[in-house]
């Protein structure tokens, strides 16, 4: 048994279990912790698939950035000193059926497609190729994404800061 296969199995199990927990755990904060593990498992699979750069990006942006922001939002959007972050149980039957149908449909699709397997994965580092691709064929998209990022950040700052002279935010101060 190759170690790679063992880790693949580990990451896949971790991914499935944590995805279930994200959907079903009654405590939103625990769901966020489960989300951390599903993101970590995806990062691990990127590593297995030879996309090292993406694995690191996944760690640094998702785990170091987005999850921290999510935790902040969860903690700040409730009275944190008494909150247990219980999420009211909604209607589960129809959504679960939809999800089950989706999974079944996808699996049928993949089964019918007769997907091939490979003898071995390509494990050559792709960092340099990635860099060349980003400043070569994808240079324009890269610049565009940078502009979107800037616009998004400015937008977030404008939305999040209290509006002065707005009666609503005056009420917040009291």
């Amino acid at each position: 048994m190759q170690l790679v296969d063992f880790f693949t199995l580990l990451f896949m199990l971790m991914g499935v279990v944590s995805a279930v927990l994200v959907a079903f755990h009654p405590n939103v904060l625990y769901a966020a912790v489960a989300l951390v593990f599903s993101l970590l498992s995806v990062a691990g699979l990127y590593g297995v698939l030879g996309a090292d750069f993406l694995a690191a990006v996944q760690l640094i942006i998702y785990v170091g950035g987005i999850i921290v922001v999510i935790l902040f939002a969860i903690m700040m959007s409730e009275n944190i000193y008494r909150a247990r972050f219980r999420d009211a149980a909604g209607k589960f039957v129809i959504p679960t059926a939809v999800a089950a149908l989706l999974i079944a449909g996808f699996l049928k699709l993949f089964h019918d497609a007769k997907l091939e397997t490979r003898a071995g994965l390509n494990a050559i580092p792709t960092t340099e190729q990635m860099g060349r691709a980003l400043v070569g064929p994808y240079a324009l998209v890269f610049q565009y994404v940078a502009i979107v990022l800037l616009a998004g950040l400015i937008g977030a700052v404008v939305v999040a800061r209290p509006h002065h002279g707005n009666p609503e935010s005056e009420a917040e101060k009291k």
Binding site: G15, A19, V20, A23, P95, V98, A99, L102, L107
Partner: peptide, 9 residues
Amino acid sequence: AVFFAFGVL
């Protein structure tokens, strides 16, 4: 597919 479906859920 599992990720996507549980995301929808």
